[in-house]
């Protein structure tokens, strides 16, 4: 039996125990875990599972890194677009003057 198969057999056995968690269980809880929404016992189960599951450790790292990349990329992409150009501000106010206003008393 290969080392990988042995590890998977052990993981399956532990997953079925009361303190265990399967890879599929971890998948269902991954966002709650990363956003710190889980209680201490659930968090510990995930950490225990990740400690003996190389695949889930890789997955968690890649998942987190991708989420961070998406945030950083879009934030960087929008840099500089933080002031409304004067001509647009003027257009908005001119349109208000000429348009319907249900708010004007």
């Amino acid at each position: 039996m290969s080392k990988v198969k042995v590890m998977r057999t052990i993981k399956s056995a532990v997953a079925k125990s009361p303190i265990g968690l399967s890879c599929c269980d971890l998948e269902e809880r991954v966002d709650a875990y990363l956003e710190n929404e889980l209680g201490w016992p659930a968090k510990m189960k995930i950490r225990m599972h990740a400690a003996m599951c190389r695949d889930c450790t890789s997955y968690l790292r890649a998942y987190t890194a991708t989420r961070d990349l998406v945030r950083a990329a879009i934030r960087t992409e929008a840099e500089g677009a933080d002031t409304l150009p004067d001509d647009i501000a003027r257009k908005i106010l001119e349109r208000k003057k000429s348009g319907p206003e249900d708010g004007a008393a």
Binding site: R8, C23, C53, T57
Partner: peptide
């Protein structure tokens, strides 16, 4: 068996 299949993460 419900075990994840994931390539190693080596950024």
């Amino acid at each position: 068996e419900g075990c994840r299949i994931e390539p190693p993460w080596q950024p």
